[in-house]
């Protein structure tokens, strides 16, 4: 039923888009049909697929690196309170600094290629994952921990069986935030370093006012966003089945 409503809403959006394209002028907002035709051409020529592959490989590599680094550090910070208390202040500071500020430095260090782009994505995605993992570990229910102690479990097993599972919902929130920021940084990286991928196409079509092609790229980025967040939502419901009944 909700799928039907969503489809109807999509229809409404396309209708509004069409109204806008008639009233604003074709040079700024292309009609849905023109966009669709542009998409057909771009897919036919393989331009879209190449750009998509470029961007996805950068996005997923940077995101995966961020996950692999952030979760263990967040867990360690939560497990060793002194470490967490010492480091957290600087992490919050770093998280608040716009990551774009680091791009010139990254270019100097890693150049304009794949590595630099992956690193920019990594920089954007790591902070929300790390901070949420840390918060999740700290948030573990003291009463459940005491219950586990009463049962006779030692500290490491309490950590594995009580503290870590209770941090999972926080980690997933971090993953979702990290996925969004990672995608933004993918485009930013492609605009600021070697102009390639979907970000590169945005720059080219935007500068030459080819708005139909430009819209195809924007919609492709939106589709990536939807696929990734929906995948994480699915993971969340799978892991949080116990919560459903509440």
């Amino acid at each position: 039923m909700i799928a039907l409503y969503r489809l109807a809403f999509l229809g409404l959006l396309i209708f509004l888009w069409w109204v806008a394209s008639i009233n604003v002028g074709r040079n700024l907002v292309p009609s849905p049909l023109a966009t669709f035709q542009a998409a057909q051409v771009m897919i036919g020529e393989g331009r879209l697929a190449t750009a998509l592959w470029d961007s996805l490989s950068i996005y997923l590599s940077g995101y995966a690196m961020a996950i692999v680094v952030a979760i263990p550090i967040g867990v360690a910070m939560g497990a060793f309170r002194v470490l967490g208390k010492t480091v957290e202040l600087y992490l919050y500071g770093l998280a608040a600094t716009p990551r774009v500020a680091f791009i010139p430095l990254v270019i100097v260090l890693l150049g304009l290629g794949f590595e630099a782009k992956v690193f920019i994505v990594f920089l954007g995605a790591i902070m929300p994952i790390l901070i949420n993992t840390y918060a999740g570990v700290l948030d573990a229910d003291e009463e459940l921990i005491e219950m586990a102690r009463s049962v006779g479990l030692r500290r490491t097993r309490i950590f594995v069986q009580i503290v870590l599972p209770s941090a999972v919902p926080f980690v997933i929130v971090g993953l979702r935030l990290g996925a969004t920021i990672g995608l933004i940084n993918t485009v930013v990286a492609e605009l600021y370093t070697a102009v390639r991928g979907l970000g590169g196409l945005l720059a080219i079509y935007g500068n030459t006012f080819r708005m139909a092609e430009y819209f195809v790229v924007v919609l492709t980025l939106a589709a990536i966003g939807i696929v990734v967040t929906e995948a994480l939502r699915y993971l969340e419901t799978r892991l949080g089945r116990w919560r459903k009944a509440a």
Binding site: L144, E146, G240, W242
Partner: peptide, 11 residues
Amino acid sequence: FVFQSFRLIPW
């Protein structure tokens, strides 16, 4: 030990 607040593991 039976606690007042049940203390069941929710997951």
